[in-house]
Amino acid sequence: MELDEDGHPKRTGTWLSASAHAITVVIGSGVLTLAWTTAQLGWIAGLAALLIFGLITWFTSALLAECNKSPDPITGRRNYCYMDAVKANLGGVRVKACGLAQYGALVTATIGYTITAGISMTVVDKTNCLRKHGHDVGCDRSNNPFMIIFGSIQLILSQIPNFHKLSFLSNVAAIMSFSYSFIVIGLSMAKIADVGNHAQTSLGGVRVDIDVSSEEKVWNVLLSLGNIAFAYGFSSVLVEIQASQIYEHFQFNIVGLCLSFGFVRISQDN
């Protein structure tokens, strides 16, 4: 096996593979919730929240990009994961604290994906049942079997050795990410074009005591902010993406990718 100067397997990543990873994370399934999110917050608060979370992601990504090598960004030791960067720059008990935060975020995100996948598959199954048998037939479904199926598939796939080296998966995932975006655009256009439905946009979002109650408004606003924060998950995997690149100074490009994809996300939401 060919090794790098630091004894690790030789890096083979390019800007294309990095772009595929970044697109998958930034324009991934999180984009599916942004149409509903903006409807709850309105154009002003919705766009402001997107910009704020985008700037936060850009700032944290810029900091992580500078941690590619430590202690010197040119001659230092390369960090291959987030915990390596924390250990090299902070050390002490802060390594454990950041590790708990990172793995806690990964676990909760995985749980969220599993639940969302189960709900989505249940809706598809229920829709097919209603179209086949009509609304008079009970087509209620439980989410649990689909969540178990999805989780089992993930468990099996996670056992594949060198799974991270299957570069074609990044390209497939990037295509799927753009597919999510086109799905959202298509559904939004269909909603607006529906003659019997008077779809409206609002600067302030859904109206209290007209569309929803005050309690529902507060809950939906908090949920919308959580959806936007969840959609900007790029920085959590940036160190790993950067460590796979064959270019020494790729951090400048990776930050540019993050910033550009932030504007792409905002344009998609419009």
Rank of each mutant, 00 (worst) to 15 (best):
E2G: 04
D4Y: 08
D6H: 14
G7Y: 07
G7Q: 06
H8F: 12
P9G: 12
K10M: 11
L16D: 03
A22P: 01
L32C: 01
W36F: 11
Q40G: 00
Q40K: 15
L41G: 04
L41I: 02
A49Y: 04
L50E: 01
W58F: 15
S61Y: 03
C67N: 06
N68L: 07
N68M: 09
I74N: 11
T75S: 07
R77K: 12
N79E: 01
R94N: 13
V95S: 03
G99H: 01
Q102N: 09
Y113M: 14
T114N: 13
T114C: 11
I119F: 09
I119P: 04
I119S: 13
D125V: 09
C129V: 09
L130Y: 13
L130C: 05
L130W: 07
R131Q: 15
R131W: 14
K132A: 15
K132N: 10
H133R: 09
G134V: 08
H135S: 15
N143D: 11
I149R: 01
G151P: 00
S152K: 01
S152I: 03
L155M: 10
S167E: 08
S167I: 13
S167M: 06
F168A: 01
V172Q: 03
V172N: 02
V172A: 05
F178M: 06
Y180H: 05
A190H: 07
A190E: 12
H198S: 12
A199N: 04
S202E: 01
G205A: 03
D209S: 05
I210S: 08
S213M: 03
E215Q: 10
K217P: 02
V218M: 06
L222K: 00
L223P: 01
F230V: 00
A231K: 02
A231N: 12
Y232M: 05
G233R: 04
S236H: 11
L238I: 15
E240V: 13
A243H: 10
S244V: 00
Y247E: 07
V255C: 09
V255I: 14
F263M: 11
I266A: 15
S267Q: 05
Q268G: 02
D269Q: 14
